[in-house]
Write a protein that binds this DNA or RNA. Structure first.
Lengths: 96, 96
DNA sequence: ATTATATATAGACGATCATCTATTTGTCAA
DNA sequence: TTGACAAATAGATGATCGTCTATATATAAT
């Protein structure tokens, strides 16, 4: 299985989502494909900062990416989120 | 409701668990009360470092604390963990 | 080809963080 | 009360992180 399909370990997952800016991006991309430009317009940080955070989410396997012409679209991988939360629960609350 | 009973916001929860040392402590305290001394013996960091991480978990409301004589015992609050994971899922994967 | 637009990358800077040693605080036993 | 043990706190240091400006890369339009 390639790295790109491996779920992040609990620590990697936690680090990836442990930032306000990233969580805001995650919510914005939760249920729709969003271009980087749209994400930037929705945030109060610069475009390079958004790209930086998108790279972290991408490296953690938490977003899907699609290229279309000049634009790049991102969407949160909700199944991956659910899976990671499940791993967290199983790791730290095995009996419930 | 006092702060000590409020669940941490998704960002606070993620930050609290976004560290290898803390996750190791969390696993060790998952299903049993553990004294600080026992936790230190189980880890490869110094006692003050363990105390530091315990304070972070305590501030995030993720552990229960009990004093007994000279010793202090910690235990992971598994229900809180489950609840936080649920909030995460609901926040970032509302439809699944 | 040149220009404009979209996104990524490089490098710098200040803030936060994890860890350490040294010390303090609190509790029990002699 | 003195000494021993348990845990927390203070302060320092190096590493990581989030953000910025400047620049590079890629694609489309003129």
């Amino acid at each position: 299985m390639p790295d790109s399909q491996k779920e992040p370990a609990p620590v990697e997952f936690a680090k990836a989502i442990a930032d306000n800016t990233r969580q805001k991006i995650m919510k914005f991309c939760c249920c729709n494909w969003r271009s980087v430009t749209d994400i930037v317009a929705h945030m109060r940080v610069t475009q390079p900062t958004v790209s930086h955070h998108l790279a972290i989410l991408r490296d953690a396997g938490l977003v899907d990416v699609r290229h279309e012409g000049k634009q790049t679209f991102y969407r949160l991988d909700r199944k991956r989120i659910v899976n990671c939360c499940g791993v967290l629960e199983h790791t730290f609350a095995p009996d419930e």
